[in-house]
Design a binder for these strands. Structure first.
Lengths: 116, 116
DNA sequence: GACAGAGTGTAAGATAATCTTACAACACGT
DNA sequence: ACGTGTTGTAAGATTATCTTACACTCTGTC
């Protein structure tokens, strides 16, 4: 099992960061909304700090995602691909997060031709 | 709402206890399996101690249940954005791998043009 | 009834985590 | 350059968990 605890935390943290950016929120806004210290949000997203389960539930509510996705459970292939897309899109200079989301949504819609 | 957090913990704890009993496991067995102190399992199930998100993921694996169910996020919560995300993710899964590589390469090359 | 064993709840001191409060680096717009 | 917003990070104070016990409640057995 390649599942180290630190790796698990980093995965959850990166998922939280992705979901937060997709929601168009800053760490400060999230910290105020969830009544968490802002440094904790930063360190949680980088995997240097644990997230409590009830905190993860609040994150999931705020970002409108489910906890199992945030924790990397289920739909693994799809999620890995989405993460790669996010990383690749992030390398595009000059694009803002809102635009990145539009690009990703456009690209994902391309796959619907072969899909019913 | 003064003890909203405590109520959440108790809900998660009771769900964990229910799932454990359904799986036919004792607290000691779970503690050994997940490499947690046995008193922690007891106090987690009673809501007196927090569960970390990565721990909840291990519980969910061991009990074969969803994290969202353990956290009390029922399947009745059908969110519009969540559906949109899952639909988009499904469409990405329909893409062939070589096409995905081309998309990623295109994105990365766009970024390197005006690279900083 | 008495006993043994498993399962669980709980307490106290040691240990490890997070929180508070700062400051610094970076990007972006004026 | 300047001010603003965002994010990363550090040090001491604070709070949580872990370790190691002990006690209680069930069952089943003698």
């Amino acid at each position: 099992m390649p599942d180290d605890k630190a790796e698990k935390r980093k995965l959850i943290g990166s998922r939280l960061a992705i979901a937060r950016k997709r929601a168009g929120l800053s760490q400060s806004q999230v910290a105020m909304e969830l009544k968490l210290p802002r440094p904790s949000v930063s360190e949680i997203e980088s995997g240097r700090r644990r997230v409590a389960a009830d905190e993860l539930a609040m994150f999931a509510d705020l970002y409108s995602v489910d906890m199992d996705w945030l924790a990397g459970r289920g739909e693994e292939n799809v999620d890995v691909i989405r993460d790669r897309l996010q990383l690749a899109a992030r390398k595009v200079a000059g694009l803002k997060n809102e635009d990145l989301e539009k690009v990703i949504d456009l690209l994902t819609s391309l796959g619907s031709k072969e899909d019913k």
